[in-house]
Simulated assay, not measured.
Amino acid sequence: MDYKKFTEDLKAAHKAAQEATEGMQDGGTANLDKLFIRLPRARETKVLEAIKEAGLYCRGKRRWIGDGYMVTVSGAQGYVREKSVTVFAAEMYERGYEIMPYRQMD
């Protein structure tokens, strides 16, 4: 796995999500939406370093529909968080990653 490319892809997706939600009102139902990304055979320490370097948060590898990483994309609570995850997921999918948005109302 190319960890440098992964970091750059995360940064680009994060930027797209931020641009898409700029100026949005953060109303609506509070949620815990995140992005789940599967990276088979990737080294967990390297993946976590890349996520942190991209300005995102992940506690570590988790088991949910297989092994992967639950990445926090936005610190918002409602519509902004929902939109951020949607845009971020689309960007990462287009870059060839195996992703799935995780949706949960608080």
Rank of each mutant, 00 (worst) to 15 (best):
M1P: 07
Y3L: 01
Y3R: 06
K4Y: 11
K5Q: 10
T7S: 06
T7Q: 15
T7Y: 11
E8V: 01
D9E: 10
L10G: 03
L10M: 02
K11E: 11
A12T: 10
A13V: 10
H14A: 14
H14R: 15
K15M: 07
K15G: 00
A17M: 04
A17P: 01
A17Q: 02
Q18D: 07
Q18E: 09
Q18R: 10
Q18L: 09
E19A: 08
A20H: 01
T21Y: 02
E22H: 08
G23R: 02
G23Y: 01
M24D: 06
Q25C: 00
D26S: 03
D26H: 02
G27D: 15
G27E: 13
G27C: 01
G27K: 06
G28F: 01
G28T: 00
G28W: 03
T29M: 09
N31R: 13
L32K: 14
D33N: 13
D33A: 05
L35H: 04
L35S: 06
F36R: 12
F36G: 11
F36H: 14
F36P: 05
P40H: 03
P40I: 01
R41F: 12
A42K: 07
A42T: 11
A42N: 05
R43P: 00
E44C: 04
E44I: 05
V47A: 02
V47I: 05
L48Y: 06
A50E: 08
I51C: 09
I51E: 07
K52M: 11
K52T: 11
A54V: 12
G55K: 06
G55D: 09
G55A: 05
G55F: 01
L56C: 08
L56R: 03
L56T: 07
R59T: 13
R59V: 11
R59Y: 15
R59N: 14
K61E: 14
K61P: 03
G66Y: 00
G68W: 04
Y69H: 05
M70V: 13
M70K: 14
V71K: 04
V71M: 03
T72E: 14
V73L: 06
S74N: 12
A76M: 11
A76I: 07
A76T: 04
Q77N: 09
G78A: 09
Y79F: 08
V80M: 03
V80P: 04
E82R: 14
E82I: 08
E82A: 13
K83H: 03
K83Y: 02
K83V: 10
K83R: 06
S84Q: 07
S84T: 10
S84C: 10
V85L: 02
T86I: 04
F88K: 02
F88V: 04
A89P: 00
A90E: 13
A90Q: 14
A90H: 12
E91R: 12
M92C: 07
Y93S: 14
Y93W: 08
E94C: 07
E94D: 14
E94W: 11
E94F: 12
G96P: 03
G96Y: 03
G96W: 04
Y97W: 08
Y97L: 09
I99H: 06
I99C: 13
M100H: 09
M100L: 15
M100P: 00
P101D: 05
Y102K: 01
R103D: 04
Q104M: 08
M105E: 15
D106Y: 13
